[in-house]
Computed example of a mutant assay.
Amino acid sequence: MTPLTEHFTLEEFTRSDTARILGIVNIPAPAIVANLRRLAKFNELVRLQLGGAAMVISSGYRCPALNRAVGGAGNSAHLDGLACDFIAPAFGTPMDICERLNTSTLQFDQLIIERVGGAVWVHLGIAAENKTPRRQVLTIDSRGTRIGLWK
């Protein structure tokens, strides 16, 4: 395992069942690894907001082929190693997580509660280096993309 921070490894940000099944090589370039390190450091701050609850990363870096395979947006922050999707069951539901992070002072770029089929998770993005975080809060579900957190 390649540690990025105390609680996060490079492997958990690059692991993908879809990539494995489709034979897609999902190895980030050094500049993207640097972004993933920044994201992992930010996630350490998120863990503190969640009372130290472990974060289970379901998606981190996606190479272009993997991003296409999973139906990701062409401008997804996942492509640059600036976003991850996660849950933290020991803290609560994805909505609980989003509500907590939304009321924090953390300077995220995007905080999205995503609902696809029966699955629900948190998408958390950070701004590129030297860019101002937008603190954009969204809901993405069967009704589309909406501003704010919608239950």
Rank of each mutant, 00 (worst) to 15 (best):
M1T: 15
M1F: 11
M1S: 15
T2D: 05
P3N: 09
L4V: 04
L4K: 06
T5K: 10
T5E: 01
E6L: 10
L10T: 00
L10V: 04
F13P: 14
F13R: 00
F13N: 07
S16D: 06
D17Q: 09
I21K: 08
I21P: 01
I21C: 01
L22P: 02
I24P: 03
I24T: 05
V25E: 15
V25L: 10
I27G: 10
P28Y: 08
A31L: 06
A31E: 05
I32C: 09
I32E: 10
A34V: 04
A34W: 10
N35D: 03
N35L: 01
R37Y: 15
R38P: 01
A40V: 14
E44Q: 04
L45Y: 06
V46S: 12
V46T: 08
R47W: 12
R47Q: 10
R47T: 09
R47P: 11
Q49P: 15
Q49I: 13
Q49R: 11
Q49L: 14
G51E: 14
G51A: 08
A53S: 11
A53L: 09
A54K: 09
V56G: 00
I57L: 09
S58V: 01
S58K: 02
S58Q: 08
S59K: 01
G60I: 07
Y61G: 00
R62S: 13
C63H: 04
C63E: 06
L66F: 05
N67H: 11
N67R: 03
R68G: 02
V70E: 07
V70S: 02
G71V: 10
G71Y: 07
G72N: 14
G74D: 11
N75Y: 09
S76P: 03
A77P: 06
H78W: 03
H78S: 01
H78D: 12
L79I: 06
D80V: 01
D85T: 02
G92P: 00
T93Q: 02
T93Y: 01
T93E: 02
P94S: 13
P94A: 06
M95G: 02
M95W: 09
M95Y: 03
D96I: 05
D96T: 02
C98F: 05
R100V: 12
L101F: 13
L101Y: 02
T103A: 07
T103C: 13
T103D: 08
S104W: 11
S104T: 10
T105E: 04
L106Q: 11
F108W: 07
D109E: 15
D109C: 10
Q110L: 09
Q110Y: 10
I112F: 07
E114K: 10
E114Y: 06
E114R: 07
R115D: 04
R115T: 12
V116L: 08
V116C: 05
G117Q: 14
G117W: 14
A119E: 15
A119P: 08
A119G: 14
V120P: 01
V120I: 11
V120D: 00
V122A: 00
L124E: 09
I126E: 13
I126L: 06
A128K: 12
P133E: 07
P133N: 09
R134S: 02
R135G: 07
R135Q: 12
Q136K: 14
Q136V: 14
Q136A: 03
V137A: 10
V137H: 14
L138A: 13
T139M: 11
T139C: 11
I140G: 04
D141I: 13
S142W: 15
G144M: 14
T145W: 07
T145C: 07
R146H: 03
G148M: 11
L149Q: 15
L149C: 06
W150V: 04
